[in-house]
Computed example of a mutant assay.
Amino acid sequence: MKVSTQFLAACAIAFTTTALATPSMSKRIIDGSKVLGCFASVFMKGEEAWTPECATAATTDLGITQEAGFDDLTLDFTKPDLTLSSSVSVKLASLPGISLPVKKFSGHFAIIDGGVAIAKLTAPSTSAKVKGRILKFTLGTTALKTIPGQEDGISKFIETLVIQPSHTFTIAGNADVTIKIPGIPLLGGVSSLVSPSASSKTLTATNVGFSSPITLRGVKGFWVKYLSQKHFTRDSKSGITTLVYTANFHNPSQVNMRLGDTKYNVLNAKGELVGVINIPNLYLAMGDNVVTATTTFTNPDAYNALTTKSNAFTVVGFKDTVKNSILAKAMVGIKFQMTIPQIVAA
């Protein structure tokens, strides 16, 4: 770990001064007496005074990161391992008199749902920018690995995102944060402590403890609107009717989802299975998605019904809706209505 002695001394004096002058400061910072003592020791004795105990105290009493959120989360179910990617926003701790110009961020985290760790991910080291107290960086495509024994847990987590209006879970772990620290004059420029012209230093704080709840809008409220006919045929021998059309799939969630090839059962007003919808390589971005779908109607009356009036159908997921085993359990809960207007046969 790289630790700037000048920076630690600055922190010690700044925190001590502010804690005495501002009784209303959050308990988390005021109670960090162990951390303040470590800062003072480092100033007097040098960097070797930053012991493992000091690092532990800094992790628990003085976390640099406070909360986080996914700005444009994408879940990809088409690969052997479920992957995610997103821009990430992290709220940093407010440090009196000290700015945190974070330049790099990395970490190892767990997804905790219902108090149980169900999956883990690694955020590789990446460049970061800070505006105010908000740190932003991009989490590239990263595998979300299921923790052994939590296969049902991760499936339930995905299912909740799919069928509920929102879901809150926790992301927790340890981060490595690299901060560029300029030379800092203390208390009006006490040059015997830190020269105003002191060169910049780099502090890499490792294993910074982090835990934050995250709430995402789910897919509930998902709707499909039939847009236009492309092809409409009936096989005279089998009696199978095939309709190819465009439809708007509206995804109200905060999650982009790459689902791969999908298929859904089509039920009539009596709840009877009358056909199957196939959509290849389905990618549901947040908001509206115009896709091409093919519905194969197996009931012999479908052609006449479709060409004489408008028809309302219930579309449901089932165990083979997608190939991904984790997502398949969640997709069983998918259910939406779709109305097909009267078809004009060519």
Rank of each mutant, 00 (worst) to 15 (best):
I158G: 01
P80D: 12
P182I: 03
Q164G: 13
S238P: 03
T168F: 07
A293R: 10
T18I: 06
T16K: 01
A119P: 02
D76M: 04
E47P: 05
G97L: 08
V274L: 01
A175G: 14
S236V: 02
T146N: 14
R258Y: 14
V266L: 09
A312S: 11
K91G: 03
G140A: 10
M331A: 12
F70G: 05
F336E: 11
G173D: 11
S166D: 10
F15Y: 05
E159A: 14
H231P: 03
S87I: 08
S212G: 04
L20R: 03
K136I: 01
S195K: 10
L121R: 13
A119T: 00
H250C: 01
G260R: 10
A119W: 01
A293H: 06
M331G: 02
S212N: 05
S4C: 14
Q337G: 15
I29C: 04
E272R: 11
V266A: 05
A123W: 10
L121W: 12
P300D: 15
F169W: 11
V344C: 07
Q6M: 07
N299R: 05
L84N: 10
V274R: 03
T126R: 15
P23N: 08
F336K: 06
R133Q: 10
P196E: 10
A117H: 00
D31E: 03
I147T: 06
A10L: 02
K131E: 15
G173L: 13
P252M: 07
I30M: 07
N299D: 07
K329C: 03
P52K: 02
A345M: 03
K129D: 08
T5V: 13
G140R: 12
T206A: 14
P300G: 13
N281R: 12
L282M: 05
I134D: 13
V90K: 09
S33K: 07
K145T: 15
H167M: 12
K2V: 00
V90I: 15
L161Q: 09
W223N: 09
K237H: 03
G149Q: 09
K104L: 12
P80W: 07
G69H: 02
A128C: 06
T16S: 00
A110D: 12
K27D: 08
N268T: 08
I184Y: 03
A19M: 07
I154V: 14
S86M: 03
I64C: 09
I163A: 06
K2Y: 01
L121P: 09
I98Y: 01
F232R: 12
S212H: 01
Q6K: 14
T78E: 04
P300V: 12
A117S: 14
D261S: 15
N265D: 11
A269N: 06
S192V: 15
G189N: 03
F43A: 15
K180A: 02
V194F: 04
I163M: 11
